[in-house]
């Protein structure tokens, strides 16, 4: 645990020492605000709800989170610091979890920075704060799952750009595949499978204010599985 925090702190410092964390936070605020106010028809809706705001998150985070995670391993490998890091007395799990916590903390900071949005909406009309809390919880969990998948893809390459593109593609697919079910009018059994797999679909139920333990478990499982694969990847690269 202590070792994990050593990694997390170093990684976090490196996020905030570079423009990356700030660019990430600013981009998330800007993109979601633009879509929410101008394109999403917030004022036309004439109702105090954050639902259309949070509905943007599966897509927006799918593009932004890989920008955050692409460097986690690709950069270490490219500049060679990977070798020094691996020969320090950390277990593979400590490395993967430490880096995950750092990326997740940046995402959480960015989410915290969006708080003025619901506060403003709340000032304009009656907002159900319980639902808002559930939506934030959902966004945090979605962020964790995305970050873990992004980190795994970063561990597969020494090229940040390919880590980013693979990450964005994978997360857009994972996040938005449930919309395919609606568009293509898939048979119910297939739609069920697709929805079950889609992180975005799970996220929707949070924005209804429903916290389902199965959804919690699913996000936790995806995060854990991706981190496990990352740790395995680190382990096996010693044997290659």
């Amino acid at each position: 645990m202590k070792a994990t925090m050593v990694i997390a702190r170093r990684e976090l410092r490196s996020y905030f020492n570079s423009p990356l964390a700030y660019v990430f936070i600013a981009s998330l605020l800007l993109i979601t605000a633009i879509f929410f106010y101008f394109l999403g028809g917030f004022y036309a809706m004439n109702r105090a709800s954050m639902r259309s705001y949070f509905a943007l998150f599966p897509a927006v985070l799918a593009v932004l989170v890989p920008a955050l995670t692409m460097r986690l391993w690709a950069e270490e490998r490219r500049q060679g610091s990977y070798e020094l890091l691996i020969t320090l007395p950390f277990t593979e799990a400590e490395l993967a979890i430490g880096k995950h916590l750092a990326a997740w903390a940046v995402i959480a900071t960015a989410l915290a920075a969006t708080l003025p949005v619901p506060l403003m909406v709340g000032a304009l009309g009656r907002l159900d704060w319980g639902v808002v809390a559930a939506e934030y919880l959902g966004a945090l969990l979605l962020g964790s799952a995305y970050a873990a998948v992004g980190q795994y893809l970063s561990s597969l390459t020494r090229n940040q750009m390919s880590a980013f593109m693979a990450g964005a593609a994978a997360l857009l697919a994972l996040g938005l595949v449930y919309q395919l079910a609606a568009w293509l009018d898939l048979p119910p059994w297939l739609a069920g499978i697709v929805n079950w797999l889609s992180l975005g679909y799970r996220f929707i139920s949070f924005s209804r204010g429903v916290i389902d333990s199965r959804d919690l478990a699913y996000f936790a499982l995806v995060s854990a599985a991706a981190l496990y694969l990352t740790a395995k990847r680190l382990y096996f690269s010693a044997w290659s």
Binding site: R10, R13, S14, N17, S18, Q79, G80, S81, Y82, E83, L84, T87, P89
Partner: peptide, 16 residues
């Protein structure tokens, strides 16, 4: 834990 290692090319974190 027993070993101190200086890899070839000295890959350090430049941003620290």
């Amino acid at each position: 834990r027993l070993v101190g290692y200086l890899p070839e090319g000295v890959p350090l974190y430049g941003d620290m």
